[in-house]
């Protein structure tokens, strides 16, 4: 197989076929004429959407982790005691 065939350029028919089954097109089509394949595509799209959202939510949790790289500015703090007001007294070196 030549390298030219590895990523074939979509033919006009292929593009038309892909467009035919786009979600927007499926939703705008008369449901009486919508076949089971189209319905299956809608269901699969919704399930994919849910899974991708769930994955994104996980990534977000990772992103909000505190930056603990050595280059982050640090202030040496030693907790000596806590006042009754809830403040923390600190002692600087």
């Amino acid at each position: 197989m030549s390298s030219d065939n590895t990523y074939p350029i979509p033919q006009t028919d292929a593009l038309r076929q892909a467009d035919k089954y786009s979600l927007q097109e499926l939703f705008s089509r008369d449901p009486e004429a919508l076949g089971t394949i189209g319905l299956e595509q809608i269901v699969t799209h919704m399930q994919d959407l849910r899974d991708r959202l769930a994955a994104t939510a996980t990534v977000r949790q990772v992103r909000v982790k505190k930056d603990v790289s050595p280059r982050a500015p640090t202030l040496p703090i030693i907790v000596s005691s806590a006042s009754q007001m809830g403040f923390v007294k600190v002692k600087k070196d």
Partner: peptide
């Protein structure tokens, strides 16, 4: 489950189709 869900989606799309104006 899957078959029932597909049929439900079909009926939902029908129920939310404006047959007078032939549009969603």
């Amino acid at each position: 489950h899957r078959d029932a869900m597909v049929e439900v989606v079909r009926e939902t799309l029908k129920a939310t189709w404006d047959y007078n104006l032939n549009r969603p």
